[in-house]
């Protein structure tokens, strides 16, 4: 598996005083599923936004290798256009490559919608494809957001606490589908998470973020609440 992302010495501050990220280093391999854990406010969302190219300026280097399809991003609160249908929201993932004029007159290439319907089908949402996003359930909206990000043909998919608002069954299903599709297509997945059970089940690797740095990395199936609290609290790691 080749490396798709290399981060070295990444530091970032919103106000120029308090550093949210402070000399962070991280590597990511193609097809790998990495969970980032840490307290709320520890900089997990900031890190994802910097990787996505949404936040700057920062110190250090963030280098993507072989990211031909770019980086897909699923925001914490999903960010769907409620007045548009599920399939129209998914087609938004192709807005960067269809050209300005066709985009302005709303003439998407046929293959964009074919792929959008296919992605929704893969995520178990074929029946909801033509329903407005505002009428979908939480779990359905989450899947639409995953499909929209996959529409970019990304090499890296960033998911910011994307199942945190779902019930346990829906959260499990969305995680299972997303990680399965990512592994099948060799897409590296970085997800910020709080749920140690889901991380245990689906992540290849866990990185724990504290004080703007990665404090500890371990295989996904080794994380537990006890381990996590020991790392975050500074106590002994079992």
């Amino acid at each position: 598996m080749g490396t798709v992302l290399t981060i070295r010495g990444l530091s970032f501050s919103y106000d120029g005083r308090r550093k949210i990220l402070d000399g962070l280093d991280l590597d990511l391999s193609a097809g790998e599923t990495l969970a980032i854990m840490g307290y709320s406010g520890s900089g997990k969302t900031t890190l994802l936004k910097i990787i996505a190219g949404l936040l700057y300026p920062y110190q250090g280097t963030v280098k993507t290798h072989d990211a031909k399809g770019g980086i897909g991003y699923i925001p914490q609160n999903i960010g769907l256009v409620k007045n548009l249908t599920a399939v129209q929201n998914v087609a938004h993932g192709a807005l960067g490559r269809i050209g300005t004029l066709p985009g302005l007159i709303g003439k998407f290439p046929q293959e964009v919608f074919e792929k959008a319907y296919q992605l929704l089908e893969d995520l178990g949402l074929a029946e909801a494809a033509d329903r407005k996003a505002g009428q979908l359930s939480g779990g359905e909206r989450q899947r639409v957001a995953v499909a929209r990000a996959l529409m970019q043909n990304p090499s890296i998919l960033l998911a910011d606490e994307f199942v945190s608002d779902l019930d346990v069954i829906n959260a499990y299903e969305v995680m299972e589908l997303t990680t399965k599709i990512c592994r099948r297509n060799n897409i590296a997945l970085i997800m910020t998470m709080h749920d140690t059970y889901l991380v245990n089940k689906f992540a290849d690797r866990v990185a724990v973020l504290k004080d703007g740095k990665i404090m500890n990395e371990m295989p996904g199936n080794q994380i537990s609440i006890k381990t996590l609290s020991a790392i975050l609290g500074g106590g002994p790691v079992e």
Binding site: G70, Y73, N83, T100, G103
Partner: peptide
Amino acid sequence: DPEILDAIRVTKAPRILILRHAIIPE
């Protein structure tokens, strides 16, 4: 919602398409 804009900005869509497909419908 800024998260709608973020999700589409990462596609590198031109600003006018973000307006046409996200901001106006929303």
